[in-house]
């Protein structure tokens, strides 16, 4: 780790101001990607703005037909939230499956979403549910927010404040973990809200999370595991590495989609 200046923000506004003013600044929102890369000297921000004490960025509330989750809410808080468990149990299960207990108690939804790791779980959940990312400047639809590997729509001085999840009638996420890291090798989220069905895939794509149109169409016609059983995802544009070839990932997309639908229709 190289030397850097540490700032503890006390309000979202102060954090946003610092982000603009401080040279080469990064927000610390759990730090599970940022700190390891800094320790390995692969990242060397001059200023770190710790959001850990910004109370207004934390919390979960039901607003109409949505669940609103503050950016600094930890994965454990989402997983254990009675509101999330009651209204979007699949989202609580997704959060419960992230990393290990230490990660879940430090890592936050805002940190994960802003980082947009191509193997992260939340991007699939946000895209499938059609969530809205609320920043200090604007509202961004999940479809527009994730823009490729570690790339997002966030501009200079922009930070995530909260995320609004529409409550879907059916939602589940199924993950096939990388055998070494246990990040998603392939993760598929499926959501049904009224007549709309959305299927989002993480872990597999060269450009991060993407929607699987064929599966959406098939499930839109009939929301059952059988509808995706015969589908084959294309290996084009998928990652291939020592853990999984693009073909294997393509195969797993089908399997995980089927399992996500089974989980979503279980009750």
């Amino acid at each position: 780790m190289y030397e850097f200046k540490y700032h503890r923000a006390t309000s979202a506004r102060q954090a946003a101001n610092l982000l603009v003013k401080a040279d080469d600044a990064k927000l610390l929102a759990g730090g599970h990607t940022l700190l390891p890369t800094m320790k390995q000297r692969l990242a060397s921000p001059a200023n770190i703005i710790d959001l850990g004490k910004v109370a207004e960025l934390k919390g979960i509330e039901i607003k109409g037909k949505t669940i609103v989750i503050g950016a600094m809410t930890t994965h454990a808080e989402v997983a254990n939230s009675a509101a999330v468990q009651a209204h979007l149990p699949g989202l609580a299960a997704l959060a419960e499956g992230i990393g290990d207990p230490q990660v879940r108690h430090k890592g936050t939804i805002g940190g994960s979403v802003a980082n947009n790791d191509p193997s992260a779980d939340y991007p699939a959940g946000l895209v499938a549910l059609g969530a809205t990312i609320v920043t200090n400047k604007r509202k961004i639809a999940a479809d527009d927010f994730f823009q490729g590997m570690f790339a997002t729509a966030l501009g200079e001085g922009e930070m995530i404040v909260k995320i609004i999840f529409p409550i879907a009638s059916r939602f589940a996420y199924a993950k096939f973990p990388n055998p070494a890291s246990r990040y998603a090798l392939v993760g598929v989220a499926v959501a049904r809200k009224g007549a709309s069905v959305r299927v989002a895939v993480t872990g597999a794509g060269e450009n991060g999370v993407f929607r699987w149109a064929d599966a959406e169409k098939a499930l839109g016609a009939k929301f059952s595991a059988k509808s995706v059983e015969a589908l084959k995802a294309s290996a084009k544009g998928l990652n291939g590495d020592m853990h999984a070839s693009a073909d294997y990932r393509a195969h797993l997309i089908g399997v995980m989609a089927k399992r996500a639908v089974m989980a979503a229709t279980a009750k």
Partner: peptide, 8 residues
């Protein structure tokens, strides 16, 4: 495979 990210 020089880290636990890739060494299982």
């Amino acid at each position: 495979t020089a880290s636990f990210m890739d060494y299982g």
